[in-house]
């Protein structure tokens, strides 16, 4: 699993490459929270386009970041949902609380 952060306009983009399971969930959570706490006013975009596998540990990570960002009054979005993560995102109900976009650009601008 590889994690990269970039700054796009008024958003922090976290791109996750590889697999998201229990093993990597803590690392993602810790790295993401550092950015969220440092830039609480920025929209936080989670880019899943390069994720090859995700189980419910990933759902826990996303919901946890949603709660943290909401506590700051901030915004969160997800981009790049592919076939490896689409089904579990669908069943989790995340789509009802976090907007999903095809691209990072769309997530940043909308």
């Amino acid at each position: 699993m590889k994690l990269t952060f970039s700054s796009e306009k008024n958003a922090t983009v976290m791109k996750i490459c590889g697999e998201i399971d229990h093993r990597y969930a803590i690392q993602i959570r810790n790295e993401a929270d550092k950015k969220i706490v440092t830039y609480p006013d920025k929209k936080f975009v989670i880019d899943l386009s390069e994720v090859s596998f995700m189980d419910s540990s990933g759902i826990g990570v996303i919901i946890g970041r949603y709660k943290l960002i909401k506590s700051f009054g901030g915004e969160i979005a997800i981009s790049g949902v592919n076939s490896a993560v689409g089904k579990i995102l669908e069943m989790s109900g995340i789509k009802k609380i976090i907007p999903l976009f095809d691209t990072v650009e769309d997530a940043v601008n909308n």
Binding site: D55, G60, M91, S92
Partner: peptide, 14 residues
């Protein structure tokens, strides 16, 4: 530990 509590639900769904 931010477990989502969806492990068995995922198993039953998939």
């Amino acid at each position: 530990a931010e477990r989502s509590g969806m492990g068995f639900t995922v198993m039953e769904t998939f």
